[in-house]
Amino acid sequence: MAIVNLQNVTYKYPLTHTPVLSNINLEVKEGEFVAVIGPNGAGKSTLCYTLAGFVPHFFKGELEGKVEVAGVDLKSTPLNEWVRNVGLAFQNPFNQISGAKYTVFEEIAFGLENQGVPRDEMNRRVDQALTMTGIRDLADRSPYSLSGGQQQRVALTSILVMQPKILVLDEPTSQMDPIGTREVFGVIRQMAERGMTVIMAEHKVEWIAEFADRVVALKDGKILLQGVPADVLTSHLLAENGFGTSRYTSAAREALKFNLWPKHLHLPTTLQEAVDGFNLTSAPSPKERGE
């Protein structure tokens, strides 16, 4: 049974003439980690807003088709009920900070406090979440006097701490340092293993290939392609439609022309796949190894 179910979803913002999402069909299973890729303007953020209920409840506009999450229908459910199931990290982390709190710790505790979670449990959960995103040392700092990447971590942490059934992340690592990005992908993978459903808009295909279960490629509001990362991320359709690919994929594609990538192999999307494939064509000959 799908926990997220979109059927023939078409959406227009109040002032747009052409649909920003058209005829989207998407089913996501509980505990699945789905990455949404696509060029700028493809509709990734709008899809995130729809899953989070901001479309149509906040943005208004025309939403056609069916959006169902955890068995609840979006159009007939008010936003304050909807958000109990779904947490959204905005593309711009600054939009996320409440403005009501003086420290990072209090900022992250804010949502739990509103839910009336007992203080002991609240402190424990906030502490745990701060550790997961690597910002325990920022707990006493003001949420405003942070670097861009630190702010983004705070925004993400404030959603993770709520442990929503469905986690919707709009480019959550865009300002994070490289190893931090990989770690955050790892944390999100773990959350999915524990049953949280994750839908993430992202450009960073190397880590999508490594961590996501499925990739949805969006272009001009339509789903161009979806499937397991190894298939979608190596599809020639992506290259032809202005999507980025990992350097492993593009190097192997080029290497094919010189017989430096084994013809029978799938193009690589991860470092390990690239190592394995290139070793087949470029492994030192017995002579070179000194045998």
């Binding site: 696509g38 060029p39 700028n40 861009g148 865009s174 300002q175 450009h203 202005g242 999507f243 980025g244």
Partner: peptide
């Protein structure tokens, strides 16, 4: 300061 943040391949 971080010009490529959130930009697609074309824009990068």
């Amino acid at each position: 300061d971080e010009p490529t943040t959130g930009q697609d391949a074309l824009s990068v």
